[in-house]
Design a protein around this nucleic acid. Structure first.
Lengths: 217, 217
DNA sequence: GCAAAATTAGGTAGTATTACCTATTTTATC
DNA sequence: GATAAAATAGGTAATACTACCTAATTTTGC
């Protein structure tokens, strides 16, 4: 697998019509020294030009842009430079946009409410060959577009033990208290919590509690 | 103010008819080296004898005990050794028992679901002259019994800013993210979180989220 | 305008969670 | 009994939260 470093960076281009968004992306991506931004575009057509010129590893595209949309740009890019991976970053959470983007050849689709770390991580996953989608997006996408992503129709399966842990988390118990109550190691509880967060697509205790409480009411 | 240490310990007696409970209390209290258990009783009458003999700083009494209840014992103790502070520790959450206990002279009333740290802290508060009650208990108690505990009729007042923070906590944002969103220091957000936890009688993020979610549904 | 309440935020330190990874042991299920 | 899934739990490190305390500004209510 390819290793990226400051000397051999993961090359990327950005496209978003809002300077603020680009500034934010620049800031976020700057935390990872192995990522280098080769260029920035403010519309789809510019993005295509940048990709033709730089042949970056990844193109980060907004959907809604003037002149040419991110989806149109995706189609063009996939024809011209198929090896460039395309990550859509947008505010749209509806299935239509996601489906269009995927059909056009996007390799990932993230909503803009993603946080910094997750964005960086997503880019690295893309590079590894994974297709990345925000958890909220996954629920929306038709399996047909990503046949090998998940064989089950995206049903969240919480095991018995996980459910027990979740219930205890939801009433405010700490991992230590839960471990004590279930007579297991604190590390086991932590594993369950971690796996639950992955399954539910949340990133902390708050998300777990929220899910548990809303589920039970 | 009196300072307790291993040499000059805070002297305490326990009374509960269940050995398991006493064992648990011993274990919990052993974490604070400045607390020394002078004796243990399995009923109210024994508890009164122990108090007469040891004149402890604090007597930790269960309500439901054979021979003599914790409430009867409280009355007796307050007559014989008024300087001994009495902390009721019970499973009853109804107002009747609380009122009876307070009327009998109890200085605090905790439910058994209290956690270790909170119990130890409660004992130290008692010593400082505070009357301590579990948050769930406070809502129950008539103000008349604790006139100087809180002048307002125990209405939880969440300020505007606290509500904003609470909402953001409930959707899974970290303090750093909240600070960013509200344009304040992370320390400010932490203060709000801390104050919210105090006000709502919960001890962690889970409690805050639970409250917020249940409130909104 | 003044007093009270709210908002702000630093200090300090301990505790808990999160993010992965790996790997062994149980338990179901066919 | 083989295989997969679930439960167990250690390693390591970074990040986040919790527990108080103190105190300076704002804001608000009377």
């Amino acid at each position: 697998m390819e290793i990226f470093s400051e000397e051999n960076p993961l090359r990327i281009i950005l496209a978003d019509d809002h300077e603020v968004v680009r500034a934010g992306l620049r800031r976020i991506l700057s935390i990872d020294k192995s990522i280098k931004i080769m260029g920035e575009a403010s519309n789809g057509a510019e993005a295509v030009e940048l990709v033709k010129y730089h042949k970056p590893d990844v193109a980060l595209l907004d959907i809604l842009m003037p002149v040419q949309s991110g989806i149109e740009a995706t189609e063009a890019i996939k024809k011209l430079v198929p090896e460039t991976l395309i990550l859509m970053l947008t505010a749209f959470e509806d299935s239509q946009h996601v489906e269009l983007a995927v059909a056009a050849g996007a390799d990932g689709y993230l909503t803009k409410d993603i946080d910094a770390k997750e964005l960086v991580r997503s880019i690295h996953r893309l590079i590894k060959g994974e297709r990345v989608f925000s958890k909220n997006i996954i629920n929306i996408i038709q399996k047909k577009y990503i046949p090998d992503y998940d064989t089950t129709p995206e049903a969240i399966v919480i095991t018995k033990r996980e459910q027990q842990v979740l219930n205890l988390v939801a009433v405010g118990k700490t991992s230590a208290e839960i471990a004590d109550e279930l007579n297991v190691s604190i590390r086991t509880v932590e594993s369950h919590r971690y796996n639950l967060m992955q399954k539910l697509g949340v990133k902390n205790t708050a998300g777990l509690v929220r899910y548990a409480v809303l589920k039970s009411t």
